[in-house]
């Protein structure tokens, strides 16, 4: 299966197989006015299987969201058909409004206008906790 290379845009490579749709939705790529190719379950020497997303336009990728979903994703910025920059992802210190706190005793359960924010409590175990009630993100 062949997908055309892009001239100016972004390639998200080394996405854990099966996670491309989550990335697509979290980055709200459906709202873009350009072509987006989602290639899933591609053979990879490094990973066995992987997903790839190709976005045929330059836009500001939310690296925090991406790093949270999968810190191993390679973000390649393509300019004039060549990789002009590779961005390294790390686990974000905070994630905002990606998950809702499930603790029924949390203040967010009664105050609807509050942002749902989780902070990185332990990088090693990739544990995020609610900034209000410290409940572990389930």
């Amino acid at each position: 299966m062949n997908i055309d290379s892009i001239k100016n845009g972004i390639v998200l490579d080394h996405i854990t197989a099966g996670k491309a749709m989550e990335v697509y939705e979290s980055l709200e790529l459906a709202k873009l006015d350009c072509s987006v190719a989602m290639i899933m379950n591609v053979k990879s020497n490094k990973m066995g299987r992987k997903d790839i997303l190709k976005i045929d336009d330059d836009f500001e990728v939310n690296l925090d969201v991406l790093g949270y979903i999968d810190p191993n994703i390679s973000v390649c910025i393509i300019k004039d058909g060549k990789v002009s920059e590779k961005k390294k992802l790390t686990l974000p210190k905070q994630i905002k409004n990606i998950h809702k706190c499930k603790n029924p005793r949390c203040i967010t359960s009664i105050e609807q206008e509050l942002d749902h924010i989780f902070y990185l409590a332990d990088e090693e175990t990739q544990t995020y906790r609610c900034i209000y009630c410290e409940t572990k993100k389930g």
């Binding site: 603790n103 005793r105 949390c106 203040i107 967010t108 359960s109 009664i110 105050e111 509050l114 609610c130 900034i131 209000y132 009630c133 410290e134 409940t135």
Partner: peptide
């Protein structure tokens, strides 16, 4: 004191006087 966890933390936003958490739920 508030039955919901994190309420005193939320209350600190824009607050000009000090606040002491006197117990927020089981937190």
């Amino acid at each position: 004191r508030h039955p919901k966890e994190g309420a005193p933390f939320v209350a600190t936003r824009g607050l000009t006087v000090p606040i002491i958490n006197a117990g927020d739920g089981g937190h």
